[in-house]
Amino acid sequence: MKRIKLLDKEFALTIPGSDIKKATWQMAEKMNQDLKDKNPLMVCILNGSFMFSADLLKLVEFPCQISFVKLASYEDMGSTGTVKELIGFNEELKGRTVVLLEDIVDTGITVESCVNQIKKTGAKEVLVATMLFKPAACQRRINLDYVGLEIPNDFIVGYGLDYNGYGRNLPDIYSLVK
Rank of each mutant, 00 (worst) to 15 (best):
77 M>S: 10
56 L>N: 02
15 I>H: 00
75 E>A: 15
110 T>Y: 00
114 C>W: 07
113 S>L: 02
84 K>P: 00
116 N>D: 10
34 D>E: 11
74 Y>K: 04
88 G>Q: 03
61 E>G: 09
40 P>K: 01
39 N>P: 01
87 I>H: 14
50 F>Q: 01
90 N>I: 01
31 M>H: 06
44 C>T: 11
55 D>R: 00
34 D>L: 01
83 V>N: 08
64 C>M: 13
106 D>A: 07
98 V>P: 11
26 Q>G: 14
106 D>P: 09
117 Q>Y: 03
14 T>N: 04
27 M>N: 08
48 G>A: 06
126 V>P: 07
31 M>S: 10
19 D>R: 09
98 V>C: 10
85 E>A: 13
32 N>T: 07
97 T>G: 09
100 L>M: 08
35 L>S: 09
103 D>R: 00
23 A>K: 03
19 D>E: 15
49 S>M: 07
94 K>I: 00
109 I>H: 07
40 P>E: 01
19 D>Y: 07
103 D>C: 02
63 P>D: 12
96 R>I: 03
33 Q>P: 00
88 G>I: 03
23 A>Y: 01
83 V>F: 11
112 E>M: 13
23 A>S: 12
49 S>F: 08
105 V>S: 04
102 E>Q: 08
77 M>Q: 13
42 M>C: 14
50 F>P: 00
44 C>P: 01
41 L>C: 06
92 E>W: 11
33 Q>D: 13
89 F>D: 07
48 G>E: 04
38 K>C: 10
81 G>C: 03
45 I>K: 05
102 E>P: 09
37 D>K: 14
25 W>Y: 14
82 T>L: 06
91 E>W: 07
16 P>K: 15
87 I>S: 15
89 F>L: 11
107 T>W: 10
98 V>D: 14
31 M>A: 11
49 S>Y: 06
123 A>W: 05
91 E>K: 12
34 D>S: 10
71 L>I: 06
22 K>V: 14
127 L>Y: 14
67 S>Y: 10
80 T>H: 02
58 K>P: 02
69 V>P: 02
55 D>C: 01
65 Q>W: 08
93 L>P: 12
42 M>T: 08
122 G>C: 07
85 E>Q: 10
102 E>G: 08
68 F>I: 04
31 M>C: 13
28 A>V: 00
112 E>S: 15
94 K>R: 15
76 D>Y: 13
58 K>Q: 11
105 V>Y: 00
37 D>F: 05
42 M>R: 05
49 S>N: 02
38 K>F: 07
99 V>I: 03
88 G>Y: 04
45 I>L: 09
67 S>G: 15
70 K>F: 15
28 A>Y: 00
63 P>F: 01
64 C>K: 12
26 Q>K: 15
39 N>I: 01
78 G>S: 15
122 G>T: 05
62 F>A: 06
59 L>I: 02
30 K>V: 14
121 T>V: 03
